[in-house]
Design a protein around this nucleic acid. Structure first.
Length: 483
DNA sequence: AATCCACAGGAAGCCCGGGAAC
DNA sequence: GTTCCCGGGCTTCCTGTGGATT
């Protein structure tokens, strides 16, 4: 089987067709367009650059705390705060990378583990993830050590090499050491995805960490999400872990979007985790400009960006609380739009379209992931907007909502719940709801759509499953719109 | 100044599904 | 496999509120 595949492969490689057969030309035209990107990856926010402009002081502080690890001490725990796109994660990744390089260079055992708590979000899973990571690292370490020992064993003169010779003390001790390591290797058992009691996972982690002397840096990104979902239990365990460790030391770095999340923490956890705090302030338009300039020179081909493109991206992103991620998205999307339209240059018009496209994508994504009842309420608001009602109130929404529910024979939520759902839509930025008092006529919320009506309409109507079929939806829609 | 409207939004508790613990 | 626990969605009940009207 393998042979067969192999032969085929060789055939393809050794006989490349000099003139590929003519195709339909579907991709030919697209490929013939001069690309405007050199390397688009540089504009993705997952990319960690070597230089982070305007973050020198934060990086310096981080490094000055982490340098303790290279001296064999435990670095202080750190909490890092900043809104999205302020360079927190990128800075931490940059410093971690350098730390690991330095650790290898000076042969000081120091390991970094990065966990995104939005993905790994329960106590069990965090402990299991950590335990498995360090078990793997231990296995790699032991395997390497064994191979080194075996090499030195083979390098011994032949009469020393034989384990059968009782005189060769050096050979014997090497043999002993190798068999001990092999025994260790067998004792490493990985933690399953589920099933173990949490304290067993914890003790497995402690054992794995303590296998050898080292400093371990655990980075918990989006730590506020973890606390929100699972409380501070894990953080309590992790922050007290050093008292259970003999040979290794643990240091924790928490990254949070939310400045106030420590309010929900146990005071002991709070003081232990927040030994040091680093704040990442939002970038201003000029700083965003520098960042984009920095990346654009290598990401785009020369002369592709017209005047004002970068400045416009930074200005747009600066309005969004100085979000560098947004600025990069804008620049990349503008480039993609330019490329798709077959142009050879990116213009400010492309940036404007990119801004619209990103906003539209966001709205579509938010609406798509809305629960059914919220969609129904949004639909009700849309109907009222279409009826040109100037001041939509909670009461009006609720009445029509109830009517729609009856028409489609579905469960009706209470008034109280509907006000909550409206507030949620407000927080998602889909509608705008402000509390107003109309004197004698009561206090209510005044509701309006805060995104283009056509976008909402298009996305809601594409929800075939929502109202038990598009046809039904259209009926309801038409009966209220009169179209 | 008192009244009153039409809600806002807090508190408590129920129900249910999913996952951890045993 | 069963039990237990937790969190989210939801209801019920309730108090609070700004300003037009009386």
């Amino acid at each position: 089987m393998m042979d067969h595949l192999h032969k085929n492969n060789t055939q393809y490689i050794s006989n490349p067709s000099p003139n590929p057969p003519p195709t339909g030309g579907l991709f030919e035209n697209l490929l013939s367009v001069e690309p405007i990107f050199n390397n688009k990856e540089l504009l993705r926010h997952s990319f960690t650059p070597d230089v982070l402009p305007h973050r020198d002081s934060q990086i310096q502080t981080l490094a000055s705390i982490l340098v303790a690890a290279l001296r064999g001490d435990t670095p202080s725990n750190i909490l890092i705060y900043g809104k999205t796109g302020t360079g927190k994660t990128a800075s931490v990744r940059l410093v971690s990378r350098e730390l690991e390089q330095a650790s290898a260079q000076y042969d000081i055992p120091c390991e970094v583990k990065f966990i995104n708590c939005e993905v790994v979000d329960t106590k069990y899973r965090i402990l299991a993830e950590l335990a498995n990571t360090f078990i793997e690292k231990n296995i790699a370490y032991v395997l390497e050590k064994i191979s080194k020992l075996e090499t030195s064993l083979n390098d011994l003169p032949p009469n020393f090499n034989s384990s059968s010779s009782p005189q060769s003390e050096e050979g014997q001790s090497l043999h002993d050491e190798i068999s001990k390591l092999k025994h260790d290797l067998n004792s490493f058992t990985k933690v399953p995805m589920t099933g173990w009691p949490t304290d067993t996972v914890y003790s497995t982690l402690v054992k794995a960490l303590d296998y050898r002397e080292r400093v371990v840096v655990i980075i918990l990104d989006e730590i506020d999400k973890l606390v929100e979902k699972s409380g501070d239990d894990v953080l309590y365990n992790l922050s007290r872990m050093n008292s259970d460790l003999d040979r290794s030391r643990v240091s924790i770095k928490g990254i949070s979007n939310d400045l106030t999340f420590t309010d929900y923490l146990d005071p002991r956890v709070k003081s232990s985790l927040g030994e040091e705090e680093i704040i990442f302030p939002p970038y201003n338009a000029n700083q965003l400009n520098d960042i984009l300039q920095n990346r654009a020179t290598t990401a785009f081909k020369e002369g592709v960006l017209t005047d004002g493109v970068i400045r416009m991206c930074s200005a747009f992103a600066a309005q969004e609380h100085g979000d560098a991620r947004r600025a990069l998205d804008l620049l990349r999307t503008a480039g993609e739009l330019a490329e798709r339209s077959g142009g050879s240059q990116v213009t400010t018009a492309h940036v404007e379209s990119a801004q619209e496209k990103i906003e539209l994508d966001r709205v579509i994504e938010v609406i798509r992931t809305l629960p059914t009842q919220s969609k129904l309420i949004l639909f009700t608001i849309l109907v009222l907007v279409k009826k040109n009602i100037s001041h939509i109130t909670t009461g009006e929404v609720y009445n029509l909502y109830r009517q729609l529910c009856k028409e489609r024979d579905s469960a009706v939520l209470t008034h109280r719940r509907v006000t909550d759902l409206i507030s949620e839509l407000d927080m998602l930025g889909i509608v705008n709801a402000i509390v107003v008092s109309k004197g004698r006529y009561g206090r209510t919320k005044q509701i309006s759509l805060s995104v283009p009506q056509t976008n909402v309409e298009k996305e809601l109507l594409s929800n075939h499953h929502l109202f038990g079929g598009l046809e039904d939806t259209s009926v309801i829609f038409q009966s209220h719109f009169g179209t």
